[in-house]
């Protein structure tokens, strides 16, 4: 909130309007993350907006992947992981005692760095999430599978082989299958942890196109090592360095006139 306000003042009315019009979907207030002794995130405070794409950039080990794993509480599985401060999704602190983590993960989908389809059929991969929540009706599942695959721009390629194994697809197809699987449960937020880093340029282009479409229905948070990718697909960019949020604002602003010298240095490839 504070950061976007600062950049709005600098860049003028247009940004300020955009900032106030959009509603906050994910917000953090003094968020700290520790893995045992290691202080991974240091007092991070900012807001991400509904139906936008926010890109996280920064060198390896800067905490950006750890951050998105806070949003669906996947860090819970790491022994010694500890979070202080607030992480708000729709205004509710998801680290408050009594939070239903299972329900949270239904609202916050995730796509991983390495495509990780289950060793099951394409159909069963997509139906996995809905089945977890008790959808058993065949027609309804058929409908979800078709819609999710269409959403993920994979339907035309796989419609004739829904029964064959998801692991038999190409890397790019597997990743779109994973995206389809993540959106089959209709989450509000989609977290993507370097979703194209294991893919060839053509598959990457397809997925970038897909992400631009997905933001109509989802709030997308994406971690990327690819500066061009962040510039191409995101509305907002957050630059992390050694666990600190150095700068956050409109992507157009971050990539053309960053306030921080370190942001500019990283983007232009002077370090990282």
């Amino acid at each position: 909130m504070t950061n976007i306000a600062v950049s709005s003042v600098i860049t003028g009315r247009e940004d300020r309007d955009a900032g106030t019009e959009k509603d906050v979907h994910i917000g953090t207030r003094g968020l700290d993350l520790y893995y045992g002794e290691a202080h991974v995130l240091k007092s991070v405070s900012f807001d991400m907006y509904r139906s936008s794409v926010t890109a996280f950039i920064g060198p390896s080990g800067c905490g950006k992947s750890s951050f998105i794993r806070c949003v669906n509480r996947m860090n819970d599985f790491i022994a010694g992981a500890r979070v202080t401060g607030e992480l708000l999704v729709d205004g509710d602190d998801i680290y408050a005692p009594g939070t239903d983590v299972i329900a949270l993960r239904r609202r916050v989908g995730m796509v991983f760095q390495k495509p990780n389809p289950f060793p099951m059929s394409i159909y069963d991969n997509i139906a996995y999430g809905p089945r977890l929540f008790g959808v058993t009706d065949k027609d309804q599942l058929d409908d979800i599978v078709r819609r999710s695959l269409e959403w993920a721009a994979l339907w035309e390629e796989v419609q004739d082989k829904l029964g064959s194994s998801g692991t038999g697809l190409s890397g790019g197809q597997q990743q779109r299958l994973c995206i389809a699987r993540a959106i089959a449960t209709e989450p509000e937020i989609l977290l993507m942890d370097e979703p194209t880093s294991a893919l060839d340029p053509l598959s990457t282009a397809r997925i970038e196109e897909l992400i631009r479409d997905l933001k109509k229905d989802f709030t997308v948070v994406i971690v990327t090592h690819n500066m061009q990718q962040a510039a191409r697909i995101s509305d907002y960019t957050a630059f992390f360095l050694m666990g600190e949020l150095i700068e956050y604002g409109k992507t157009s602003k971050i990539f053309t006139a960053p306030d921080e010298a370190r942001t500019g240095d990283y983007i232009t490839g002077r370090f990282g």
Partner: peptide, 9 residues
């Protein structure tokens, strides 16, 4: 596989 399953809720 476990990550994918947990992330789906």
């Amino acid at each position: 596989y476990r990550d994918a399953s947990y992330a789906l809720g």
